[in-house]
Design a protein around this nucleic acid. Structure first.
Length: 850
DNA sequence: GTAGGGTTAG
């Protein structure tokens, strides 16, 4: 029922909008004495369960002619209000209209109160507010019972303006000391998101009871301030107020939000002390808390022990199972529900669809769709949205579109599910087109697109979209920032990184573990390990991913020792290592040339941590050993692998053979690599480059041909540098930059000065069959050189130049950078696809080992 | 008369 369903005979002086509650209406009315109507029939409607029963009784007493007293009408209205269906309320309203004006003010007041309560508790807050207006206009003075009902109605429609007006009326009437009204005001303000106002009312209350405390605790818990809620709970207990089951439900849900099991159990201990008995709502809150805290077994036990599992409890455990990725468990609960009840409802089906989506199980998904249709559960937008998501995740785009097209009321979630689904199925372009024309979009829509661009490696575009968000006045949240931080990290744009951090602080964006980790990673990739560690040290909670980001920061810098120290600290804090952290560790050892440490860590994986090394770990070890020149040991390790070595493994060995000039092992590796007939461009390029540097141009041509046949091309080298917040990208030999002439002149000057300093270009880095002069020209136009030249002309003297390169640096560019850093007295930081190089005063932090 | 549970998309 909406406000339109009941036609209210409102006086013409008052507009139909709820905002017309005014204080003057109240001022004109004068309080009247109340009198009890003793002659009315009592209890007629008391035990009515259904509308039919009620109608029957009403009919009977009407026949007897005893229904005309105001009291009996009041009781009828109360009974209808109690039922809370739109039908019963409609009946009540009609009965009320028949008697309007007849029963004296007292009787009318009771009727109004009853009806307002009924509308409010049945969720028709708007109708309740309108009724209040009508009552005031009719000259009926509200009493202290009216306001809790009215405020509850205002809460339901989040009518902040209306509620504030009611608050004003409470003051005018001198009712502010009533504890029920105080409690209602606390609840109202909290639900409107004005938790500070709620607190103010609470602090000003002369009398407080358990409901006052509970209302505020609940307010904090729901407003995402669970710490405050728990704190308030302990304060309440200390004050000597005993919690009841409602309080416990609120505070336990706060613990669930905090994901703090220890606290949850501590809080639960008060139940015994306070003598609070478990009811279904409380069991539900506990199960939810245990699940969210990861204590799956405790949740399961409680759930199994509960004899009268109701629908909500089943839904709670199911949705949590799905969220935790325990889809099989969720489906087992679902199966039991189908067999022995409670009967799945729409909320159950949301979890069921989510489970199908997780599994990508289209058969089961279709069965669920069938269940919806058979049981008349369709036509609810949430269900359709969940189905769009499910079909998309199962790769059934046409079905998703069909569900979408059939929706009569598409919500923003429908659109978001559609674009996210398209992106997941590789249709980023279509998603973008839809995104641009969506009838309404929200933060999730923007975040979806930002993440999609990041996922597609379109980092500049992602940041561009973020800028558009700024211009449109949309405040990003932590999900946006995770995507943007990631994009910024890939671009290695340090100024942008610093700006991002300021933005987060300025906009008070909560930095959770995920965002913290993303920021650590961002600064690490931007070549600022100090800032990375500063953020890491400030993080309250750190999981293995957070530690991995910090260890990775050390690895990129080539600081193997500190990486190991961090790892030991992590173990000391009883954080369980995973496969990923070992990749970071072994990489750190590789960059730091710590062969012994690497061997030790690699062994410890199986011997201490019970993590069997995967191919990627073997890859790291082969890289570590072969770079250090231990080619034979690397080869032995490859031969001992329990799995088939891939092209990456042979590639590392091959690359090392080139540096250590071991033709024998190289030939063996090359043979293996060609046998794998891999489609990885890098390897073929490397192979072709090895042949090229040995002058075997026929072989080079052969490999190039293979590449062409497979449709793969050499990834062109590209470097980017950030100047004044703008990212300038250069590809090898690029002439497209607007300042191309100045860049060319600068390069010329650099090369003269380098030659004077005795630099001889290393032409073996040019892997093409061209003459020397051409080779020298090509070499001088490598993308990082262009970026450095641009950096020199566009930034002030002494400013560091930061460059991000997509491929590994060649030896000529490396010695070029070293000399430029000395001659021009500039710090040059280059991140290649493997690590960082900090060039200062003619030296590089990698000690020429990369 | 006031306070409490499960809900899809990034």
């Amino acid at each position: 029922m909406t406000t339109m369903a009941v036609t209210l005979p409102l006086p013409p002086v008052v507009s139909a909008t709820p905002s017309s509650i005014t204080l003057t209406n109240l001022d004109e009315a004068k309080p009247k004495t109340t009198a009890k109507d003793s002659s009315s029939p009592t209890g007629y409607f008391k035990n009515c369960k259904t509308m039919n029963e009620l109608r029957q009784i009403h009919c009977n007493i009407t026949k007897k002619g005893i229904c005309h007293s105001p009291s009996s009408v009041t009781k009828l209205i109360a009974a209808c209000a109690e039922m809370g269906s739109s039908e019963s309320l409609h009946y009540a309203r009609k009965a009320f209209e028949c008697y309007n004006g007849d029963g004296g003010t007292t009787g009318l007041l009771f009727m109004y109160n009853s009806l307002i309560r009924g509308y409010s508790s049945a969720g028709f807050g708007g109708d309740a507010i309108l009724l209040y207006i009508e009552m005031v206009v009719a000259g009926i003075v509200p009493d202290k019972f009216t306001f809790p009902f009215l405020l509850s109605a205002c809460t339901k429609v989040v009518g902040f303006f209306e509620g504030s007006q009611a608050h004003g009326a409470v003051f005018k009437m001198g009712l502010e000391e009533d504890v029920f009204i105080g409690n209602s005001l606390v609840h109202f303000y909290a639900e409107c998101g004005k938790i500070d106002y709620a607190r103010k009312v609470f602090d000003g209350m002369l009398e407080r009871n358990v409901v006052s405390w509970t209302s505020l605790i609940c307010g904090y818990a729901r407003r995402n301030c669970p710490e405050e809620a728990v704190y308030l709970f302990f304060e309440m207990v200390e004050t000597g107020v005993r919690p009841n089951s409602v309080t416990m439900v609120c505070v336990i849900s706060a613990c669930a939000k905090l994901k703090d099991l220890e606290l949850g159990e501590k809080v639960s201990a008060y139940m015994g002390e306070a003598g609070v008995k478990l009811n279904t709502l409380l069991v539900n809150a506990l199960v939810d808390m245990y699940m969210k805290c990861g204590a799956i077994d405790s949740a399961k036990r409680l759930f199994n022990e509960c004899v009268d599992r109701n629908l909500v409890l089943c839904n709670t455990i199911m949705s949590n199972y799905v969220r935790q990725g325990l889809v099989r468990e969720a489906l087992s609960v679902f199966g039991e529900m189908l067999q022995q009840g409670p009967r799945p409802d729409r909320v159950t089906m949301l979890s069921a669809f989510s489970a199908c989506a997780h599994l990508g199980d289209i058969l089961f998904g279709k069965q669920c769709h069938g269940y919806i249709l058979r049981n008349g559960l369709e036509g609810w937008d949430n269900i359709s949205n969940a189905m769009i998501d499910m079909y998309m995740k199962c790769g059934k785009q046409e079905m998703a579109h069909r569900v979408f097209d059939c929706m009569s009321k598409k919500t923003v979630v429908s659109w978001n599910s559609l674009i996210a689904g398209l992106i997941r199925n590789g249709k980023v372009e279509s998603a973008w087109e839809i995104f641009k024309d969506m009838p309404d979009s929200d933060l999730v829509s923007w975040n979806t697109m930002v993440s999609a661009l990041v996922q597609e490696s379109m980092f500049v575009e992602a940041i561009e979209l973020f800028r558009v968000m700024q211009n449109e006045g949309i405040i990003a949240d932590r999900v946006t920032m995770v995507g943007i931080a990631s994009a910024c990290g890939y671009l290695g744009a340090l100024d942008l990184a610093k700006w991002i951090l300021t933005y987060i602080e300025k906009n008070d964006i909560h930095c959770d573990m995920r965002l913290g980790t993303a920021l650590v990673d961002m600064f690490a990739r931007c070549g600022d390990p100090q800032s990375a560690m500063q953020i890491f040290n400030k993080m309250v909670r750190r999981d293995v991913s957070a530690w991995t980001a910090a260890i990775g920061a050390m690895a990129m810098e080539g600081n193997g020792e500190q990486a190991i120290d961090l790892f030991n600290e992590m173990l000391g804090q009883e954080v369980k290592p995973d496969e990923v952290v070992f990749v970071a560790l072994l990489t750190a050892c590789s960059h730091g040339r710590s062969v012994d440490q690497g061997r030790h860590l690699f062994r410890s994986m199986t011997e201490i941590h019970g993590i069997p090394p995967q191919i990627v770990h073997y890859g790291c070890m082969v890289d570590l050993l072969s770079r250090a020149g231990l080619l034979e040991e690397a080869l032995d390790l490859i031969k001992s692998m329990p799995m088939e070595p891939n092209d990456v493994i042979w590639g590392s060995l091959l690359a090392a053979c080139r540096n250590h000039k071991n033709v024998q092992v190289a030939a063996y590796a090359a043979e293996r690599i060609t046998k794998l007939a891999s489609e990885r461009t890098g390897i073929h390029v490397l192979l072709s480059n090895i042949y090229a540097s040995a002058g075997k141009w026929t072989e080079v041509a052969k490999v190039r041909l293979q590449l062409k046949e497979k449709g793969v091309h050499k990834v062109p080298g590209s470097s980017s540098t950030e100047v004044n917040g703008i990212i300038h990208e250069f590809t090898s030999g690029d002439e497209s930059h607007s300042e191309n002439t100045q860049i060319a002149l600068m390069l010329q000057e650099i090369n003269y000065r380098l030659r004077d300093a005795g630099h001889v270009p290393d032409l073996s880095n040019v892997m093409l069959d061209v003459d020397e002069k051409e080779k020298e020209y090509l070499l001088s136009r490598h993308s990082e050189k262009l970026a450095i030249a641009f950096g020199l002309i566009s930034t002030g003297q002494g400013m560091p130049i930061r460059v991000v390169k997509n491929l590994r640096m060649c030896t000529d560019c490396h010695s070029f950078s070293k000399l430029v850093s000395r001659i021009y007295e500039r710090e040059i930081v280059i991140r290649d696809n493997n690590r960082f190089h900090f060039f200062r005063q003619g030296y590089c932090s990698c000690c020429d080992y990369w």
